[in-house]
């Protein structure tokens, strides 16, 4: 359940400390936004511990899932995202204003999104220590916050709702409030 996830994260942090790499993988020379396959690769290299089970690998290539972005003004945009693509990339391909200062290299936290449904949040692989380090600095962090560049479209995430937090407006007042755990 949700609470246990957070405990697990803590353990995760401690465990990986001893072998912490001096460097997180460098991706600076990769024009992330233009290559749909790279984010998936990167994602896997970060989540080496939690290997994905790709049973339907073959037809995943052409599969698309439905994702809804809710922008700062509460306006919804429905898009189709190919499996394997990051939410940052998907947002940019669809002219959705999601910042991505470091272009998906896990060094900025500007691609912060809030997963609007706890059940969907729980379907995502746990954030890595590196993602948690950046989430620490995300503006308006909630219990279901993630970095858009680290959420990769998977068939089971169909129907994902992501809110883009606003700096100048208090989100909670405007209707959406992450459910307490």
């Amino acid at each position: 359940m949700f609470i246990s996830r957070f405990y697990r994260q803590g353990a995760h942090t401690i465990k990986s400390l001893i072998k912490a790499p001096a460097f997180i993988p460098k991706t600076s020379h990769i024009p992330v936004v233009h290559n749909r396959h790279l984010p998936a690769l990167r994602h896997e290299s970060f989540c080496s511990g939690a290997a994905k089970q790709d049973s339907e690998e073959g037809n995943q290539e052409n599969q698309k899932i439905n994702v809804t972005f809710v922008d700062k003004d509460g306006e919804e945009t429905h898009i189709k995202v190919p499996v394997g693509m990051s939410m940052l990339e998907a947002a940019h391909e669809n002219d959705i204003e999601l910042e991505g200062a470091c272009e998906g290299s896990l060094a900025c936290s500007t691609c912060h999104v809030i997963v609007m449904d706890m059940a969907q949040y729980n379907k995502l692989p746990d954030p890595t220590d590196e993602e948690n380090d950046m989430l620490d600095l995300a503006f308006g962090l909630t219990e279901t916050s993630r970095l858009g560049c680290q959420i990769i479209a998977e068939p089971e995430l169909d129907g994902l709702h992501l809110a883009i937090p606003s700096a100048t407006r208090n989100f909670a007042v405007d209707g959406f409030k992450p459910k307490p755990h």
Partner: peptide
């Protein structure tokens, strides 16, 4: 400091 920077300095070879 923040965790990212700390993790990095602790990880120096």
């Amino acid at each position: 400091c923040t965790a990212k920077e700390l993790r990095e300095v602790l990880g120096i070879k």
